[in-house]
Design a protein around this nucleic acid. Structure first.
Length: 281
DNA sequence: AGTTTACCCTGTAAGC
DNA sequence: TGCTTACAGGGTAAAC
């Protein structure tokens, strides 16, 4: 579910409310992708100083160490302040509760591809393994066209899969990858290094514009995503190609096609998004 | 070394 | 109505 916009919307929906709270209890449920990495009781008494984001990870800065939270495919967080109506007991798909003096942060994750991992610091070996290989932050100033182009030039992987991989730019998942390639009129199977300068510029702009717009709209809610406030997103209403196979392209009217790339679905318009030769421009 | 494949897990929807 | 299969917003490790 959660790509960069959903993770960022989640972060904004509880970061200010949890900041300054002290951990009262940490209660794991069923095993997630990785073990927590320390005894849950050891977290008690630490303060949550703030919440940052790196790619699709949330980083909860504690007075000592930090918690890395990843939502995987089906994860979502809920936060209810101490003054609000309590969330009640954990359900069958609630796999981590962080009880604090400021309220309860709960991870809901049916497929359990998500994770909550404690690391002593960002230079910790595990933290480095998870974070160091991540590419550029698309909404930061460091994500320049020149840097993006050199990232594309270094790979012959189909551009859709390179975007998904996160080694050049982070946060573009399966929904937004289809959308940005449609907007920049690039065929998803084009080898990354064959994306020409004009197309690369259009793609760079589309990534920034689409992700920023999706954050503004509260993310994409296809099935069950909601922010930590329980708010659904609305970007799905703007999707031009994702999930629309067989329906007419909004630009040219020809039917949107479905392509399988590395066991993931890609949606595109065969007429608007031509093959690599035409991407040279 | 770069690129592709298999797999982690559960729920839902489609096909028979 | 059931049973089986395929697929779902992600990411890693192992295999090419």
């Amino acid at each position: 579910m959660p790509e960069l916009p959903e993770v960022e919307v989640t972060r904004r929906s509880f970061a200010d409310r949890i900041a300054g709270a002290r951990i009262v209890a940490a209660v794991p449920g069923k095993p997630l992708r990785w073990p927590l990495g320390l005894r849950p009781e050891a977290l008690v008494g630490r303060e949550v100083r703030g919440v940052r984001r790196r790619g699709k990870y949330l980083l909860l800065d504690l007075s000592e160490g930090l918690l890395l939270v990843h939502l995987g495919m089906s994860g979502s967080l809920r936060f209810v302040g101490a003054e609000e109506a309590p969330l009640g007991p954990a359900g069958p798909h609630d796999h981590f509760d962080l009880q604090t003096t400021g309220g309860l942060l709960r991870l809901h994750d049916p497929r359990r591809f998500g994770a909550v991992v404690y690391v002593a610091g960002e230079s910790d070996a595990l933290a480095r393994k998870l974070l160091d290989h991540l590419g550029m932050e698309p909404l930061d100033g460091g994500f320049t066209l020149a840097a993006f182009r050199s990232g594309l030039a270094a790979s012959r992987t189909p551009v859709k899969q390179l975007l998904l991989g996160g080694s050049v730019v982070v946060g573009v998942g399966n929904i937004y990858a289809s959308e940005v390639l449609f907007l920049s009129r690039i065929h998803p199977a084009t080898p990354a290094r064959e994306v020409g300068p004009r197309k690369a510029k259009a793609l760079h702009e589309a990534i920034r514009a689409v992700l920023a717009r999706a954050v503004e709209l509260g993310g994409t809610t296809l099935r069950d995503f909601s922010s930590a406030n329980g708010m659904a997103g609305h970007f799905q209403l703007q999707a031009k190609v994702y999930g629309r196979d067989g329906l007419p392209c909004s630009h040219c009217g020809s039917p949107i096609r479905l392509l399988r790339q590395g066991q993931r679905s890609t949606y595109y318009c065969a007429r608007c998004q031509k093959e690599s030769r035409h991407n040279q421009t």
